[in-house]
Amino acid sequence: MINQDFDIESLSQNLGGISNDNQQLIKDVQNILRNEIVDEDGLVKLCQQGFTNQTSRLRGIIWRLLLGYFPLNRKYWTQVIIKNRDNYNNIKIENIKKAPPQKKNDHPLSRNTDSDWNNHFQDQQLWSKIQKDVIRTRVKELGKEEFREMLNRILFLCCKLNKMDYVQGMNEFAALILYMCMSDPNEKLQNESDAFYCFMILMTSLKNNFQLQKEKVRAFQDLLKKVDWKLHDHLVNQKMDFSILYVKWFMILFAQDFHIDDSLRIWDCLFCQKNNREEFLYYLAISFLIQLREDLIVGDFGQILLILQNLEKQDINLSEVIQRAHLLQKEQKKC
């Protein structure tokens, strides 16, 4: 039997002020989610344009499904939440500790790898390094102390459990996922543990994302030349370094350059591209360049750089950018 504890019906409540098209999208997604086994392909077709403020109530469930945190069988969703909440509490207790007690063969100056004191000081260094970024990450949306502490814990535990170094950019990823969870209208989905496990899943797929990969920069540049050679040649003539775009856009997946609602919508689209995420990212980036083409094509290097490093201040229609990216992707596949 389907576990009725998980509320699907509330998705279509309080639709006043929402356009007819968006009301229909909510109801269509809801109909798919009512099935015991969710039709993932059908869900992707409905959601690939991303969610606006009017449809953002769908995001929490959809992200969990597309990331693989929720199984497609709906009857297990509540069980997943409860089990992982308990697991996460145990992880916090086990890994976030105060100074260790005094031991005969251990002391604060020990540098032995099995020293509790040495491990404690390494943990403190990692926590402090993360905290320096957290205090300036999405301050408007996650500026409350409780959210900063959550974000710090998520990043710290991810690094510690995976024995990985913290690098800038991870904070932007974790911030979007935490915000997605804590702003969900469904209280059952407002929890730190879901944010932690969704972040862990994402980092598994993006573990190589924080390294500059020149062959991918070249692939993007070649694709731009194929789509719009005039714009490409102008950027090249102005000595535009395409690796700058790679760092700003591809490494952190547009998580930093926009209002948080726009970054979340871009991620909606990327998660719907389960097997073509990197490819779609290229078309999305090219679509942004085309959207800004009128100013870029007449700009010198300084003007171009100013535009591309301040996308949030540009007059951009994100719906047009997303639609064009999908169109470019389809057109290039025909070639």
Rank of each mutant, 00 (worst) to 15 (best):
E146D: 05
F156W: 10
K214N: 01
F147S: 07
K140C: 03
M240V: 12
E145M: 11
Q221A: 12
A255N: 09
F220W: 08
M170C: 06
K188I: 14
R136P: 05
I130Q: 03
L189E: 01
R136H: 00
T137A: 01
K226V: 02
L126V: 05
S128R: 12
R138G: 04
Q256N: 11
D133G: 07
V247H: 07
F271P: 08
D233N: 15
C159P: 06
F250D: 03
L126H: 07
N186K: 14
G169E: 00
S205E: 01
D268G: 11
E215C: 02
L264F: 07
V167Y: 09
A219N: 06
G143I: 12
N171K: 13
L151D: 00
I135D: 00
A255L: 12
A174Y: 07
V236N: 02
C158D: 03
A175D: 02
K225A: 04
F242V: 09
L231M: 06
V227G: 04
D184L: 13
F271R: 09
V217G: 00
L142I: 09
K188R: 14
N191K: 13
I260K: 12
E215D: 04
D261N: 13
D257I: 11
Q131V: 07
F210E: 00
L142K: 11
I260C: 05
D222F: 09
A195Y: 11
V217W: 01
M200I: 11
T137Q: 03
E145W: 10
R153Y: 04
E187Q: 14
N208R: 12
D165C: 13
D184F: 13
H232F: 15
D233C: 13
F271N: 03
E149Y: 09
L176I: 14
D233Q: 15
S183Y: 14
Q168D: 04
W249Y: 14
I244M: 05
E192F: 14
K239E: 01
V236I: 15
K239A: 02
K214W: 06
N208L: 10
N171R: 12
R153T: 03
D268Q: 10
Q211E: 02
M240K: 11
E146R: 13
Y197R: 07
K144E: 03
Q238M: 12
N171G: 00
F250M: 11
N237T: 11
Q256E: 01
C198Y: 09
Y246K: 10
K239R: 12
L206I: 07
F156C: 01
K226Y: 08
K230E: 00
R153G: 02
N209A: 05
D262H: 10
Q168K: 14
L264W: 08
R153S: 04
N209T: 03
V236E: 00
V236P: 03
K140M: 06
C159R: 13
E146G: 04
L264V: 04
H232M: 05
D194S: 14
